[in-house]
Amino acid sequence: MEKTPRIIRLSGRIDATTAPGMEEELSSGIEEGTRAMIIDLEAVEYMSSAGLRVLLSALKKMRSVGGEMRLSSLQPHVREVFEMTGFSRLFTICADIGDAQSSF
């Protein structure tokens, strides 16, 4: 099992088209034994509800195996979606990768 956090960098638009690929990436990370994960959203310009679902599903999986997850570097649009949907209450959101790493 990994002890140092694994950083997964996502980019572009996360919507109905790209969310399945992201889900696969996150799931395989957890299945491979990652128990501390940072999802870097610095390069994500847009996130739809499909993206939110995938992140929530990954969070549930991570918690079910006793792991932890952080989100970092949210851009204004993505941050707005998190604030307005209530998702900011579910996730630990860090300003940048450094903050996220030191939070474990």
């Binding site: 739809s48 939110l52 679902r53 307005m84 209530g86 998702f87 209450r89």
Partner: peptide, 17 residues
């Protein structure tokens, strides 16, 4: 409209969770 639908759908996912 995209922003509002994302908020609505996302909020429903949140409430459901």
């Amino acid at each position: 409209v995209d922003r509002l639908f994302t908020i609505i759908a996302g909020r429903l996912v949140y409430v459901s969770h």
